[in-house]
């Protein structure tokens, strides 16, 4: 018995001259939450469409639960749960009608699988007679997830399920995903929000059709090659342009009100930075060494790719 749920190797997809996927390979284990993290245009949607049998790859191949995404598409379509980028609901149908319809096309029995969606659907059940178009973003997201789950899929593929949804709904959504994972469903999720990476078991950081890095969030953070410092000041812009002139600095980027400064070598430390700033008459700041987040790593990988 294999523990691999989704497997992709050398996947390439071009739209005319645009290279959407440039030969990516990855492995998703059964029962894990795997995140594809990257901005718009990274190739996440194209990848998901290949995995859901909606697109044919130009090169490379992929399997889901051992089934080939091109040859076995008929069977795959019965075991996949898919939530496309925009919540694909019928806006003019009610909550209840949407659920019934999606159960109907998969020949699924709502009462039989209700236990799967109970936690989620119970929250929108009071609005069962309301049209989907009149729901808030968070509720639409819950309904779309219920509809994608009602046929008890083995693999759930979610394309940017949290985009445009507020922080509270996002948090609740992730809590739901973790419960689903505990039911044994493998979950692939694409997101542009770096902070969601930490909630995944493993992630792939994507940019320009490539996977820049993959692994557990901890592994990725541990691979960060620089010392990292955070400086806070009231004159963020001035500080930013000043610190970028310092030798021994790899990069300096704004992070909220702070500036994250990565050192290009181990010799650059708190003292060196402090001395540099003071020697340029910059006095009011708070400086500390910090451990990087996924976003620091992502930026570093992007810069590495740009350089090469």
């Amino acid at each position: 018995m294999s523990d691999i749920s989704v497997y992709g190797e050398g996947l390439v997809k071009n739209y005319g001259k645009t290279e959407a996927l440039r030969g990516i390979s990855f492995l998703v284990n059964k029962g894990e939450i795997f995140g594809f993290i990257g901005p718009d245009g990274a190739g996440k949607t194209t990848l998901f469409r290949i995995l859901t049998t909606l697109l044919l790859p130009d090169a490379g191949h992929a399997t889901v639960e051992g089934f080939h995404v091109v040859k076995d598409f008929r069977h795959l379509r019965t075991i996949l749960g898919y939530m496309p980028g925009r919540f694909s609901l019928y806006q003019d149908l009610t909550v209840e009608e949407n659920l019934k319809f999606f159960a109907g096309i998969f020949k699924a029995d709502i009462s039989e699988n209700y236990y799967l969606i109970k936690d989620i659907y119970d929250q929108i059940a009071p609005f069962a007679k309301r049209r989907a178009g009149k729901l808030s973003g968070g509720m639409k997201q819950k309904l779309a997830l219920s509809c994608a789950l009602i046929h008890k899929p083995e693999v759930l593929i979610l394309d940017e399920p949290t985009t445009g949804v507020d922080a509270v709904s996002r948090r609740e959504f992730w809590e739901m995903l973790i419960r689903l994972k505990n039911q044994g469903i493998t979950i692939l999720v694409a997101t542009p929000y770096m902070d969601e990476a930490i909630l995944c078991d493993r992630v792939a950081l994507m940019q320009h059709g490539n996977i820049m890095a993959s692994g557990t969030p901890d592994q990725i953070i541990a691979s960060y090659p620089h010392r990292l410092f955070s400086i806070k000041s009231d004159q963020t812009l001035e500080l930013l342009s000043l610190i970028r002139q310092m030798t021994g600095i790899h990069s300096a980027e704004m992070f909220g009100g702070n500036i994250h400064v990565s050192a290009s070598n181990a010799l650059t430390g708190i003292k060196e930075i402090e001395d540099f700033l003071r020697s340029h008459d910059f006095r009011h700041f708070e400086l500390e060494e910090i451990s990087p987040g996924i976003e620091d790593c992502f930026i570093d990988f992007m810069k590495m790719n740009q350089a090469s």
Binding site: R170, P192, L240, M302
Partner: peptide
């Protein structure tokens, strides 16, 4: 929304520059 982290930072640098020129910035974000 949906922009890569480096571009987002460059964008915020632009916002800071505009504010430094006296333009008030009223912004919503998730």
């Amino acid at each position: 929304g949906g922009v890569d982290p480096i571009t987002r930072r460059q964008f915020w640098e632009m916002i800071y520059e505009a504010a430094a020129q006296g333009i008030t910035v009223f912004v919503t974000t998730h």
